[in-house]
Write a protein that binds this DNA or RNA. Structure first.
Lengths: 181, 181
DNA sequence: GTTATTTATTTAACATGTAAGATATTTACA
DNA sequence: TGTAAATATCTTACATGTTAAATAAATAAC
């Protein structure tokens, strides 16, 4: 009584399970890789410059708009920080005179940020060290492998973004009301 | 996400080479990939199960020793948490009856952890969802590419550990915790 | 032209991360 | 044996992340 339909179902289920295990492995390795390097690089950044990776991110985003004022939300989005957390981070950086905040002249809801000279100088220092550390951490990997990895990771990100804008399939346990997205 | 640095000082520094820029790009993609997927998967874990990825990590490590008591430090090491932060995390999980803590019978300095039935049940639920979510997030990536990525990421981790173990005193990481995949 | 919605940010409460130092215990050794 | 060093954990202080709700201003609707 194995109809074609049932065969197809079984087949797709089996392959789905194998693929699921592969996905988990990939996810695990991705996490381990990132966390280990992040811990190493972030630790050095903290020890040598007393700054976190988050602050480095903020500075590097401001650097890309060198001289211009940038809205807080603009920075928060680019650093993947929620609007809720950026406030305290910016506060501390302002207190340390790394950046300046002012009310937007155009939109009175909005505030803007810009690097100070001190922030720019610190950023220049950090950038240099950061590039060296990352390069040292990835020493031993062939350039071709790096290129291959970069290409694959970009592809992963693209695939991820494509699938998460849609409803997640899933056997829909028939229980909870699915939402989100 | 450690954005930053794809275009900055390289042109002004003749000593910076293509390899360094490649390393930075790789680092950037690694961070972006992990953070995006982590945000997606972690967000769902939080919404559906009201648990964080850190808690999920703790439970999955305890699960590997199913039934046995495991030292707090053992868990902290495997989930890459410092001894300082694991305390509060464990406290909250104990308060929620997901795990139990007792003084070690062998070593009076040491404390041990074990999952409760409630914790085990929750873990089973989460594991199932987690596997599906990750698989959905990585849908669209060919199995061969996943395998290639896994292999490359393992290589990166190995290279990273090789270059950063040098300055650490002691023979510690030689027989470090071997992880599965 | 008042009312409702959206947008930009802050506030609040809390979970999780780090480092430094305290405490207790085991271990090594002169 | 007594003392120093290593080990395992906790405490404290604080940086950073999350969500939800509050505030304020711009925008849209009637």
């Amino acid at each position: 009584m194995a109809t074609a339909t049932q065969d197809k179902t079984i087949d797709s289920q089996a392959s789905s399970q194998a693929g699921e295990r592969l996905s988990l492995s990939l996810w695990l390795q991705l996490m381990k890789c990132t966390k280990e390097i992040e811990a190493g690089v972030g630790g050095r950044l903290r020890k040598v410059h007393s700054q976190s990776l988050a602050r480095f991110d903020v500075l590097s985003q401001l650097h890309r708009f060198a001289g211009d004022w940038v809205a807080v939300g603009e920075i928060a989005g680019r650093v993947m920080a929620s609007s809720g957390n950026i406030t305290a981070l910016v506060d501390r950086m302002v207190a340390e005179d790394l950046i300046v905040r002012r009310a937007s002249p155009d939109d009175r809801r909005s505030h803007q940020l810009r690097m100070t000279d001190k922030g720019a100088a610190l950023f220049a220092d950090m950038t240099d060290d950061h590039a060296r550390w990352v390069d040292a951490a990835l020493d031993g990997i062939a350039d071709k492998d790096k290129e291959r990895l970069i290409a694959l990771l970009v592809e992963v990100r693209r695939a991820f973004e494509a699938t998460t804008t849609i409803q997640i399939k899933g056997p829909a346990p028939g229980s909870g009301p699915e939402q989100e997205s």
